[in-house]
Design a binder for these strands. Structure first.
Lengths: 104, 104
DNA sequence: GTGATATGCAATCAAAAGGTTGCGCAACGG
DNA sequence: CCGTTGCGCAACCTTTTGATTGCATATCAC
């Protein structure tokens, strides 16, 4: 599932969502459970979780009447890898341009 | 210069800014020059460049009366490295939790 | 100096984002 | 059966964001 990268960054560009991800790092939790620990309402958290799920950073797991969310660590690593690849490509190209600029 | 990471992601979470970064990848350029290639006005680009400069992804270079912008490739690589570190940490912790959950 | 070109600043606007409250419904526990 | 807990919608509100137009200012070329 090759997520489009940019939305992933958009999802990661919000402090509250990082708080949620961090909280989920200590174990799966539902929106209600998270609302107990974070200074925002359950609904706000639910929306954030929807955004995170949309880009594959978390995954919902139904447990009876509640819906726990789990962090998908691999998606984070994957994004990092892709970003790194782009950074490397950039360095390469920029180096090439520098060479040209120096009249070599 | 340890930029706060989250704003960097926020900056990277916009298609237009990626267009700008991509365009800059082919060589330094001014807001006006970029406006010629992208479907947005110079001012819009100027704002995006300000955002990108704010998080250290690009750097302004004054050349006479114009201001060229250069991509800082290292900032991209650096961000990738930090994200990867977080991803790794996550994997580690999630694995540990899984072990506990399995009663091992 | 004059005209063309580049940047900067401000006002304005529409849409998106983050957040809240309120309500209805499903499901669990006694 | 009934109260409680958890979700999901929907409406609504406010702030931010992406983008525009307009104008002032600086600078380069001639």
């Amino acid at each position: 599932m090759t997520t489009t990268l940019v939305p992933v960054f958009a999802a990661l560009g919000d402090e509250t969502r990082w708080s949620i991800l961090t909280a989920l790092g200590e174990g799966d939790a539902s929106a209600s459970a998270l609302a107990g620990r974070l200074p925002v309402t359950r609904q706000a958290i639910a929306k954030h979780l929807a955004v995170l799920a949309e880009v594959g950073l978390v995954e919902p797991v139904r447990v009876g009447r509640e819906v726990r969310y789990r962090v998908i660590g691999s998606q984070l690593s994957d994004t990092a890898r892709r970003l790194d690849a782009i950074g490397a490509e950039w360095d390469r190209r920029l180096a090439a341009i520098k060479q040209i600029a120096e009249g070599l």
